[in-house]
Each structure stands twice: as structure tokens, then as C-alpha cells.
Computed example of a mutant assay.
Amino acid sequence: MTATIKYDEVEVGQEIPAVDYRVRRVDLVKYAGASGDFNPIHWNERFAKAVGLPDVIAHGMYTMAQGSRFVTDWVGDPGAVLDYGVRFSSMVVVPDDEEGAVITVSGVVESKLEDNKAVIVLTAKSGGSRVLSKARAVVRLA
């Protein structure tokens, strides 16, 4: 598979529309099983509150993965992502209800580079707070 977004069709400053990713407690349990990260702050409300958190929080790497998912869905090929990095700036608090939390990710084409590459700057928010900062991906476009 190759990138479906064409380099010549992308402009610096172009916005990539926001996508909402819902996070429920069951998603955190599944992620814990896949990642091996069973820290109780990610599934046990009593423990999370005892250590000063407002509630159970999503794994940082789970949150980071939603940003990566946004980029790979946009570019059309996970192999087209050449570099990806973020800093964590806030927590995704996941209440114990049917709604859970929402991570909203959007992007902007920051620059175009040689060899059909582009730099994408991401914004990721949840509960009114920015949860990822300095989030950037370098992708190779078609």
C-alpha cells in the first residue's frame, strides 16, 4: 500500500479535518492487555483517586496512538509515516459510563520537504484541554 494523498495536492497551511476518537474503560482494559501496562490508574477508579487523579486516565501511549491513527488514516498508509513524536500535556480522564471520553485530533500541513515529504502538526484535545503538545509527524506522500 502507498500513500493516497498526493504531494502536489497538499498545500502548506492546509487543515486536516478533526476526527473524534471515543475512549471507554473497556478500551483501556484491552490496551492494558495488549501493552502489558496494568497500572491501576488506568482501570481502578478508587486507586486513581487515592493517588490524586480526578478519575481513571487513559494510557499516554494510547493517547499518542490516536494521533498516529489520525495521520495514518489521512495519508492512507502506515508505512508512509517516517517520524512521529509528541509531548504529553494533559491527561485523558475516562469516566465510568457509556460515553467515556473523546480525544479530538486535527492537523495542519506545516511544511513540504524534498522527496515528497510533508510535516504535519497535530492538535489533540480531550475534555477541553490539549492532551498532546509538540505533536508532529513527517510523512511521505504519493
Results as ranks from 00 to 15, higher is better:
residue 1 M to D: 12
residue 2 T to W: 07
residue 4 T to S: 06
residue 5 I to D: 00
residue 6 K to L: 05
residue 18 A to D: 02
residue 20 D to N: 12
residue 23 V to S: 09
residue 24 R to M: 08
residue 27 D to Y: 11
residue 27 D to M: 01
residue 30 K to N: 12
residue 30 K to G: 14
residue 30 K to E: 15
residue 32 A to V: 03
residue 34 A to L: 12
residue 34 A to Q: 06
residue 36 G to P: 06
residue 39 N to S: 14
residue 40 P to Y: 05
residue 43 W to E: 04
residue 47 F to E: 08
residue 48 A to M: 10
residue 48 A to F: 07
residue 49 K to Q: 12
residue 51 V to H: 05
residue 53 L to Y: 15
residue 55 D to L: 06
residue 56 V to K: 08
residue 58 A to C: 12
residue 59 H to P: 14
residue 59 H to K: 14
residue 60 G to N: 09
residue 62 Y to N: 05
residue 69 R to T: 09
residue 70 F to R: 04
residue 70 F to I: 10
residue 72 T to Y: 06
residue 72 T to W: 05
residue 74 W to N: 08
residue 74 W to T: 02
residue 77 D to E: 14
residue 78 P to C: 04
residue 78 P to L: 02
residue 79 G to P: 04
residue 80 A to Y: 06
residue 83 D to N: 05
residue 85 G to R: 15
residue 85 G to A: 09
residue 87 R to F: 03
residue 90 S to T: 08
residue 90 S to A: 15
residue 93 V to A: 09
residue 94 V to L: 06
residue 95 P to L: 00
residue 99 E to Y: 01
residue 100 G to W: 10
residue 101 A to G: 07
residue 101 A to P: 15
residue 106 S to C: 01
residue 106 S to A: 13
residue 107 G to K: 01
residue 107 G to Q: 06
residue 108 V to F: 07
residue 109 V to L: 08
residue 111 S to K: 11
residue 112 K to A: 03
residue 112 K to F: 00
residue 115 D to S: 03
residue 118 A to I: 02
residue 119 V to K: 07
residue 120 I to H: 04
residue 133 S to T: 09
residue 133 S to K: 04
residue 135 A to R: 05
residue 139 V to P: 10
residue 139 V to A: 01
